[in-house]
Amino acid sequence: MKFIASDRIDGLLERLGERGPVWAPREPEGAAGTVLFAPWRPGDAVELDRFTTLSAKKLVLPASEKLLSFSYSLTPEGEALDITGADQGRGDTVLFGARVCDARAFTVLDALLALPPGESYQDPGYRSRRRNLLVITLACTAGDAACFCSSWKEGTASTQGSDLMLYPAGEGYLARSVSPRGEELLALDIWEDSDLEPPELAVTDRVPFEALEAKLVGSLFSDLDFWRELTAKCVSCGYCTYTCPTCYCFDMYDEMSSSRDGERCRSWDACMFYLYTLETSGHNPRPTIAHRYRNRIGHKFSYYPANQGPVLCTGCGRCIRGCPVGLDIRDVLRAAGER
């Protein structure tokens, strides 16, 4: 197998940088203790041992994005309106040091946002960013207490969504390409040959959820008390949705930059917010946290699998690590399974 020593990772990143911007897990300045996917520049330290607090979803779904610009003008014939689409043309972006759950999240989102023309609506922004994203994934030899990716068949061995896999071995990483673009990367002259053995991969928590798809639209849906009890401590802050690599809901709004010009934008939204579904009449079909959490779990473990195929969760554990009141999605899934 190909191999790269830890002290040559910077060199690899520099070579990757020739293809486009490189994003890697880093401890950004002023945010000591927090690891985030951030743009990497030569000289920046990369943090490959700890997990990132936020997911890499912003590389395909930016937190805010311009969809259109518009401008009004006065002509002899009256008022004119110009609308121009956002520029989708861009080169490659390299994501280095994603984890298996991060890479797999892209394929989960692809099932809705990047189907071939004719099968679904196109999300042009998502599609072009996704098509141009190179994903280099670091396999996990250890999870933490919040990880539960082993609930999925391939667990930590999954290569879905990745172009190149890195496996910790000796004083560096073994590399295996899992896509034609990964193959191109392996052709760089930066790799050594090695006869090191790939490591034993981590086994993380397992939460059974297969039976939930039917229950979540049936008996569990009508059992609002169940959701009330389980979400009693939730404060509806929306952190779990923003940090999640597979939550994709968005809001659309217009912003004026002058009295005549402006942009139509979209931003991440959160189904945990009261305003998300509030109707103009004042009626809200999901008025309480219990209703909204039920929808969050229902969407992830029933509606999305029924409509799109994959479960809308990869077991990355971010919502568990970061929830301010310690609400653990696994407790909810287990309780739901037993109900």
Partner: peptide
Amino acid sequence: LERRMKCGIGLCGRCNVGP
């Protein structure tokens, strides 16, 4: 049925009744 809507094309997530 009426729901709060944004995208109108099944992507923004808010107008679902169950699945």
